[in-house]
Design a protein around this nucleic acid. Sequence first.
DNA 1: GACGATGAGACACAAACTGTCTTAGTGTCT
DNA 2: AGACACTAAGACAGTTTGTGTCTCATCGTC
Lengths: 195, 195
Amino acid sequence: MGATDLETRVLDATKSCCERFGMGKVTIDDICDACGVSRATIYRLFPGGRDVLFEALRVRELTEFFDVLTAGADGVDDIEDLVVTLVVVATRELRADEHLALMLASEPGDVLSQLTVDGFPRIIRVATDYLMPLLAPYLDPRFAEQLIELLVRTVISYFLAPSEHVDLGDPDSARAFLRPGLALLPPRPSERTFT
Amino acid sequence: MGATDLETRVLDATKSCCERFGMGKVTIDDICDACGVSRATIYRLFPGGRDVLFEALRVRELTEFFDVLTAGADGVDDIEDLVVTLVVVATRELRADEHLALMLASEPGDVLSQLTVDGFPRIIRVATDYLMPLLAPYLDPRFAEQLIELLVRTVISYFLAPSEHVDLGDPDSARAFLRPGLALLPPRPSERTFT
DNA sequence: GACGATGAGACACAAACTGTCTTAGTGTCT
DNA sequence: AGACACTAAGACAGTTTGTGTCTCATCGTC
């Protein structure tokens, strides 16, 4: 492999082409030009072509998002703090994502569909994969899964349509908003064995 | 005609589509969507289609440019000051043109061709139309035309490839740069009749 | 020199864009 | 009301462009 991984180069080029032209206008040849790779290579790298390539880009963006998120919640060892931190960091991360903002501005339909309909199951899946290990020490697994899904839905909703009353990017506001729900958290598995 | 002139709306939409997608990617339908006009109307307004439409946009941009330029040189009644002002204002106007910058970044080939080859004769033509009335009081017409052409070439060249020694956007620098040439200006027509 | 990987490009098929046309709807003027 | 000008909507054929698959030449590595 070259100086930078070939797949990485192709995906980077795809991302930048999306920003320049809008997803709907990007052609495979645009991407080839942008990263100096031949078409054959792209089809060899992403068998299935265009759709598979764009899927791969979405997956990469999503996992990058959760890498950053979990890193941002590293070391928090109280369940309430953890939930608040996850919500705050995730919200800030979404707001700071320039690529997301550009795509949201130029092709709202596709992006919204990715965030709320077609792409939503994958988001839940990846979120669960990444966050379950963090919540497992404090919560019953079944409950943790429900909580993760609820948090994802909440963060996305407040990101897309900010509230005048709550700012999930602000720790205090987020904590105040989340506390009523957090108070209802079932006892830890370890405690439950004693009741 | 509607609230805003139909042609204006179409050209505005064309411009904004060029910025979003790049000239090469814009379709007539994109423009229709952007300004809420039907395809038939565009082809009626710009018989000849795509090419004619883009030509019309270039013409509009160019005349707008010289409208601003001549307004910026209004009231200057010394030939040296006038030349310096024209050069400085034109340079600043080029540098401040976001649309131009965007196009230059995304489609250098086409834009450069418009500034230096294919579109150049038109620039000279329009520049002459606009600037001759300003220079006529001071210079022999034949000489004025040569001067205008030289100034256009100079401003464009220094805009595209800035010099380390001269900044044509700065009045002092521009004056120092232009003075040697200005000293050679032939006497005014009114003076010449007396020699 | 053999090998795996990449670039270049031919190819058939599908999709899209263009430019022209017809139709129907809308508002204006008399 | 009726004639008129103007426009949106969209059908249409012809062309261009893009896709995905393929083959073959090239390059660097072992």
